[in-house]
Structures are given as structure tokens and as C-alpha cells.
Design a binder for these strands. Structure first.
Length: 797
DNA sequence: GGCCTGTGCGCG
DNA sequence: AAAGCGCGCACAGGCC
């Protein structure tokens, strides 16, 4: 297919598409004439382009067989035509659309995500010098993505079409309008051995980058600028605050508590939780026309990059620009910078940074013992399975390879697949499917995958992260995303201790001789919040005084099931599922296939021997639940209304979740959007309850110990340093002065290391969590009765 | 060796 | 045929 050039083309813009689609290839022979073409023409009009401004071409000239993504060699086959088109047409602007266009323009196949290249001017290899004036080339998403359902991309494409490169800033100008009076932005870089290498400082007047090893006066330069500042700012600034403190820089106490802190990462997430990238440079470039500084400085973003290998001048420039870039991003987010909700969020993030520092203390013998056990079980099961596979005639067999498992069970044994995978329609090999086969080999496979996960994720994956402090004890910090999820939950990673099974949680022990681990969790937090939001007093009664799931089961079924019996699990599944809009068919299927009654047992719950009758019964049960709690229905209808009119839902504290559905109920994926809209206010408020607990308990404990936040942080940093440097030298663990410390958060659950002399801390923690004063200050109408259970033991869980 | 997507599974 | 939500991590298999 040839390029399409309109009559009397103004040479303003050339659009580069991917490859011809069916319509274009076989009917019109003109690029962009299908559904996505119509959308594109609409967007071009909205962006102010006249029809004679825009020419079109494709990265690939013909349609790849079976509509597959063209391989890089196919892209390169067509690339000379693309270059020749660019040179012959000499447009002022070129906009590529989609990943394939990006591959063709850059002549590179890997490391390409549109999100990372939006807003940058692209260098196209091969056209340098061939034209009197080089066209400005940039990239955006393909409109086909919008047509296929990614409706949120439409606005971004429009934004990219409207880009004006005349106001392009080659590099950060020194002066920028101030975000707020007294803001100082800070960035730090450090080496793999944790030594501080660079400090970047920026305010509305100037930006500078310092190499701390070359500039002897770095500390006094930094200190004097910090002293003049009221607010400290940065991208993920709480890590930098710890780093400055660790290196003896004095910090205002309001920064340590998180009070006068402005974090561009947090505010960006608060403003739009659906951004494709929260990386500093990408955030800035998608908003503000300037030169990129990370890719350009041959410093490609790699997680494993050791900054100490990078030349000093490059590092200094990078910290300078990183510190500077925070300011325009904050300015973009100005409207929510000093709102009570934003302050609350920053306070939580500050406390979370200390929880990371506290870390968990690991019983190394327990850990190694478990690893040994898992490994042996795994070898044993693998040997058994290998014999089975060989006897069945399979020459190659790995129990974690789904293809091999399918070959064994469904080809060799001729078992009937209980289901199929969603996209590729392959026979299902899930635990549930294997369980329903009732076959000894399927049972072996279930057991194998359980031990495989324990061994690989919870032993091999965790081992390199543990720092051994003594022969018996290790230190394992837990890392968190302070606003990690779209509902505002904080997520843990590297390792993710939030998904550790009970058996592995046992490796966490107290750092104190005779100390205990206390897990304090809110009882049925989300259900109470749902009852509160739905204004359903009866539902609230059941989850506060009326026996919870057991009480509801009694009303629905006429008897009180014991915990973890099939009837109990079924009612729990009914209540949880229905509250978040699970429909009758799926509810019936869940029971039919089997529910988990203990970590190792699955039980089928069949209300009738035939599926048809079972479905009827399950539907009746679900309806009778909904009829008894009419608030739920009203709540769901209200969320749908909110979703359809605003394309977003808000939580009680004012957090927003964007769920664009421009075509109303006809929007592709609408059912999922509706469920998310129903879930969000509940899960989000639950995370704010626990967030409040994080900051309130810390404050209460410190005030009880007569310790300032500054003293506490100093103590934590000194202790961490001892942990990291005393490897194998001491027989006993270096300890804090007597203090109960929080070291983990699991959504509705805070985990503490309780000092033996501070048993009374249990009551303090429980009462503070139940009172949630910070949340009540933020949300005066909050009056949900909260109750907290403590599980206290010498191990976690 | 690294990246992407699909699938599966642990926790709340 | 089919409509609970939120995560992170591991592996397979394709690609460069």
C-alpha cells in the first residue's frame, strides 16, 4: 500500500501507522479507513488539523499473513520505503502510531513501551542530514487500541496530536514559577554499597547537582538550603529523607512526620491512578515539552544499574535534573498539594518508610529447615511424577510446564478437561480443574505445585534478601508502595510478605529476648464499611454484634454452621461475592466446583445433583440475601449512576478512581468497570482506616515512650546499620532501647514486634486502632464501630 | 540475558 | 455464554 497524500497537502503532518488492516488492504487501498481511521480523523479535527494538513503512510507496506505482528526482519524489509517516504515528502511533523510504528522509526525491536516514549522527540536513524530541515518526529498510541476498548487512551492520543514543539525547552530553564513559597526539591543517588554519591537540589531560582565525594562542602551547601526551606519535595522523597538523615544532614521535624513534605510520585498517583508510567522523566515529558535526560545520557533505566559506575559529571547532571523535574510535576498537581487528604497520604507514607526500616527479624534455623523440607518434598514428588510420565510414553516432562501436564492428563490418560483457558482455549490445568478430576496423578500435581511455589517463591526467592546478623538471626526489610494500588491499598514487594502462606510466616520471630509478635487485625472491616456506605443497619448489626457470617447463615439457612464448614464457607462466599456484584451463575459455579475449607482441602457444594437445579437453588439463595439487605441494592445502583454520569467514583475521604466509560453501558468491558466502581469506595476506605492506624499507633507509642520522631528515626537508622554491618560477629542481636515496633502491614492487619517489658502496649495498640483519630479528623462523619483482634505469639501467625 | 504476554496461585 | 475486587511473583514461550 502506498502513502495517502491529500490534494494540495500543506506538508504539515505525516502520520505513520502500523500495517494495513483487512479493510485497507483489500478494499480501499488507503491507510486509516477502518473504525480506527474514523476515530483518528475525528481526533485530528479536534486537534485543529484541516484535512489537507495530514498525509498517511504505514510502517509496513503489506498485511502480514494471519494479521500477526510483523517480525523485526519484516519491519526492516519495509523500512527503506518508510525512509524514502519521509525524505520525499519532507513533512514538518511526523507522528507514529502504535508500537510497530515505533519499532520502524527507531529501527529497534526491544525495550519499547509507548508510555516511555510519549512526549519525546525521536531520532530516526537513517534520515540524518538527508533533509534541509529535519522533521519533528514523535509517537503516540494507535487509535485501534481505543476501538478495542482502551478508552482511556483517547485523551492521551488527542494530547499528543496537539503537541506544539515551538515552546520546546532544550533543557531545564533556571527559573520557573514557584510551586509554593519555600519549596526545596531534593534528589539523592547512592551506590550499590549504600554510600551517598550525589545530591540534587532545586527551587524556583536554580537547580544544582553535587558530587559529595568531590565537593567537600556538600553538607553545608545542602544544609543551608534546607534551612531556608519550609517544604521538602521530591519524587518518592521519603527514601531521600532517610538517606539525608543517615548522612548526618539535619531535617525539620515536620519533614520526618511527613507534615510539610510534597511527593511528586504520591500526588501524581492521587491525581490520576491510571497513568501508564509514574517514572519521573516519563511523567514530566508527557506534560511538558523538554529534552529527555535519562535515555539521552546513555543511562538507560535499568533496575540493576550501579550508579557508582557512572561518571561523576553524568550523575551530578542527572540529580540536578531529577530534582528540578519534580517542580513542574508538583505545579501540575497544585490543586491537591495541601489538601487534608494529601497530607494524610503523605503522613502514611512517612510512617511506612519507618516500617520498611524496622524490617522483620528472621529465625534462620526455622527458615533453612523449611527450605530443606520443601526441597525434599519437591524432589520426591518430581521423581514420582517422572515415573508416571515415562510410563505414559512422554520423553520430556516438567510438572510446572502446563503443556506437559496437558499432554499427560488429556492426551495420554484421555481425561476429560473440566474447563478451558480464557484466551487460548486450552484445557485447564488449574488447581480447581485438577481437583475435580479425582485422579491420583492430578493429586500429585496439585501437591507438587504447592511445594514448588513454597520452595521457589518463599524460600529461594526470599533467601538472597535476608541479611544474616548473627548465626541464628537475619534481617529482612519489607518494601511498600505507599499508594500501590488503584484502590489506594499499600502493596508490598521484594519480597511480597502480604501473600506469604501461614507456614512461611513462622520464620519471623521477635528481635527481643522474650519478645513477641503481635498481629492486630480489624474484624470484618470491608463488610462493616459496605454496611455503612449502603446505610443498611441490619447488615451492620450482623457484622458488629450479630455473629457475622454465622448470624447471616442462621437467617438464610435456619441453622448456625461452625467455622470453616462447607455451609459457613458457602455463606461467606455468597456475602463477599454478592456485595461486590458477583452474579448468580458464577456464585453457583463457585460452589459447584468446590470451595476451600482449609489450606489443603477443597469441598464441592452441590445444592442438587444436577447443575440446572443447583443453579436455580443458588440463585434463590442469592436473591434471598439481597432481599434481606435492601441497602446493598441501593448502594450498587448509586455507584452505577455515579459511574455513568462522571466516568469515575469517589470514596468517602475524597479519593477518586477513574473508570472512563464514554459509551455508557455499551462501553467494552463495562461489567468489569461497574464491579470496580462498586468495590472501590469500600476497599479504598478500608485502606484509609489501616492508614490511619499506621500513623496513630506510631504517634501513641512514641508519646508513651517520651520519644520524638527524630530520636526514633535516629534509633532505627543506627540499628539498621548494626544489622547490616555486624554480620556473623555478634552472638546476640543488637537491640533498640525498649520499644514496640511495627514492621508490616497486610491490608487490614498491622504486625508488631512487642518488647517483653511492654506487654501493656497490646491495649494501647488495640485501642488506638479502634479509635482511628486521624481518619475521624479527616472524615468527621465516620462512625463505623471498629473492633480489633490480636493474635500474639512468639512467631508471626 | 532481558522484555512481553498469558496463565496460575498465594494473601487480604 | 455468562459480570466479585485488589495485589506480586513464578514459569513458559516468543522475540530481540
Amino acid at each position: 500500500m502506498r502513502p495517502f497524500i491529500p490534494k494540495g497537502w500543506t506538508k504539515k503532518l505525516l502520520i505513520v501507522g502500523e500495517a494495513p488492516g483487512e479493510d485497507e488492504d483489500e478494499r480501499t487501498h488507503i491507510p486509516f479507513t477502518g473504525d480506527s481511521g474514523r476515530l483518528l480523523h475525528r481526533l485530528l479535527r479536534r486537534a485543529g488539523y484541516a484535512p489537507d494538513d495530514v498525509a498517511f503512510t504505514n510502517a509496513n507496506r503489506c498485511r502480514p499473513p494471519h494479521n500477526l505482528t510483523p517480525s523485526m526482519s519484516q519491519v526492516r524489509d519495509c523500512r527503506p520505503f518508510l525512509l524514502r517516504t519521509l525524505q520525499a515528502l519532507a513533512p514538518r511533523y511526523v507522528i507514529g502510531m502504535g508500537r510497530n510504528a515505533l519499532r520502524a522509526l527507531l529501527n529497534r525491536g526491544s525495550d519499547l513501551a509507548i508510555a516511555n516514549y510519549r512526549g519525546r522527540l525521536l531520532e530516526v536513524p537513517g534520515i540524518d542530514g538527508a533533509l534541509p530541515e529535519k522533521p519533528k518526529v514523535w509517537i503516540t498510541y494507535h487509535p485501534a487500541a481505543v476501538v478495542r476498548g482502551a478508552v482511556e487512551l483517547e485523551e492521551r492520543i488527542l494530547e499528543d496530536l496537539r503537541r506544539k514543539w515551538t515552546e520546546f525547552h532544550p533543557h531545564p530553564p533556571s527559573a520557573l514559577p514557584s510551586v509554593k513559597k519555600g519549596v526545596l526539591s531534593v534528589d539523592t543517588e547512592y551506590g550499590a554499597d549504600r554510600t551517598l554519591l550525589n545530591v540534587g537540589l532545586a527551587d524556583s531560582e536554580s537547580a544544582l547537582g553535587i558530587d559529595v565525594q568531590e565537593e567537600r562542602e556538600w553538607k553545608s551547601i545542602t544544609q543551608s538550603r534546607l534551612n531556608r526551606a519550609t517544604y521538602i519535595a521530591g519524587h518518592s522523597i521519603f527514601g531521600d529523607i532517610l538517606k539525608l538523615k543517615e548522612n548526618g544532614v539535619g531535617l525539620k521535624s515536620s519533614w520526618i512526620t511527613g507534615e510539610n513534605v510534597l511527593c511528586s510520585l504520591l500526588t501524581s498517583r492521587m491525581r490520576d491512578e491510571t497513568l501508564p508510567s509514574y517514572e519521573l522523566e516519563n511523567l514530566l515529558l508527557s506534560r511538558y515539552p523538554t529534552q529527555p535526560w535519562k535515555l539521552a545520557s546513555s543511562l538507560v533505566l535499568k533496575k540493576t544499574h550501579d550508579m557508582s559506575c557512572v561518571p561523576s559529571t553524568v550523575r551530578s547532571e542527572r540529580t540536578r535534573l531529577d530534582a528540578w523535574a519534580v517542580l513542574p510535576i508538583l505545579r501540575e498537581n497544585k490543586s491537591l498539594l495541601r489538601t487534608p487528604l494529601s497530607r494524610f497520604t503523605h503522613r502514611i507514607a512517612a510512617t511506612l518508610s519507618r516500617i520498611e526500616l524496622v524490617g522483620a527479624v528472621i529465625d534462620l534455623r526455622e527458615f533453612e529447615g523449611l527450605g530443606q523440607k520443601y526441597g525434599e518434598e519437591l524432589l520426591d514428588l518430581e521423581a514420582q511424577l517422572r515415573v508416571v510420565a515415562t510410563n505414559a510414553g512422554l520423553t520430556e516432562f516438567s510438572p510446572t510446564n502446563d503443556g506437559h501436564v496437558r499432554a499427560l492428563l488429556y492426551d495420554k490418560f484421555k481425561l476429560k478437561p473440566p474447563g478451558y483457558t480464557k484466551k487460548r482455549r486450552e484445557p485447564s490445568v488449574t488447581k480447581l480443574a485438577l481437583n475435580s478430576l479425582n485422579h491420583p496423578v492430578a493429586e500429585l500435581l496439585i501437591k507438587y505445585s504447592a511445594y514448588d511455589k513454597l520452595f521457589r517463591t518463599n524460600y529461594l526467592g526470599v533467601r538472597p534478601l535476608i541479611v544474616s546478623v548473627t548465626d541464628l538471626l537475619g534481617y529482612l526489610p519489607f518494601n511498600f508502595n505507599p499508594l500501590g494500588t488503584e484502590t489506594g491499598r499499600r502493596s508490598s514487594h521484594d519480597p511480597n510478605s502480604q501473600n506469604w502462606p501461614r507456614s512461611i510466616r513462622r520464620i519471623v520471630c521477635s528481635r527481643y529476648l522474650g519478645g513477641q509478635i503481635g498481629a492486630f487485625d480489624y474484624s470484618s472491616l470491608e463488610m462493616r464499611i459496605m454496611a455503612w456506605l449502603a446505610k443498611d443497619d441490619k447488615l451492620m448489626y450482623y457484622f458488629t454484634k450479630g455473629g457475622g457470617y454465622i448470624g447471616i447463615a442462621k437467617e438464610l439457612l435456619g441453622f448456625e454452621p461452625k467455622k470453616d464448614t462447607p455451609a459457613y464457607v458457602a455463606v461467606k462466599s455468597l456475602v463477599l461475592g454478592t456485595d461486590y456484584n458477583m452474579q448468580e451463575w458464577k456464585f453457583a459455579k463457585t460452589l459447584w466446583d468446590g470451595v476451600k475449607t482449609s489450606p489443603t482441602t477443597w469441598q464441592e457444594i452441590r445444592l442438587s445433583p444436577t447443575w440446572r437445579e443447583h443453579l436455580k437453588q443458588a440463585a434463590r439463595l442469592r436473591r434471598s440475601y439481597l432481599d434481606r439487605f435492601p441497602g446493598l441494592k441501593r448502594y450498587m445502583e448509586a455507584r452505577e449512576e455515579e459511574l455513568l454520569t462522571g466516568g469515575a467514583v469517589a470514596s468517602a475521604t475524597g479519593r477518586i478512581r477513574h473508570l472512563p466509560c464514554r459509551a455508557g453501558r455499551e462501553t467494552p468491558g463495562y461489567p468489569h468497570l461497574l464491579n470496580q466502581a462498586i468495590n472501590f469506595p469500600v476497599q479504598s476506605l478500608a485502606s484509609d482506616v489501616t492508614g490511619s492506624a499506621l500513623i496513630d499507633v506510631e504517634r501513641e507509642l512514641l508519646s508513651y515512650y517520651l520519644m520524638s520522631y527524630d530520636e526514633y528515626l535516629t534509633l532505627l537508622l543506627e540499628t539498621q546499620k548494626k544489622y547490616l554491618t555486624s554480620q556473623g560477629k555478634g552472638d546476640i542481636l543488637p537491640t533498640y532501647s525498649p520499644a514496640t515496633v511495627c514492621f508490616n502491614e497486610v491490608h487490614d492487619n498491622l504486625v508488631f514486634d512487642v518488647h517483653p517489658s511492654r506487654v501493656k502496649d497490646h491495649d494501647l495498640i488495640r485501642e488506638t486502632m479502634q479509635a482511628a483519630p486521624s481518619l475521624k479528623k479527616l472524615l468527621p462523619g465516620f462512625d463505623i464501630p471498629l473492633s480489633v483482634n490480636a493474635k500474639i505469639s512468639d512467631r508471626w501467625e
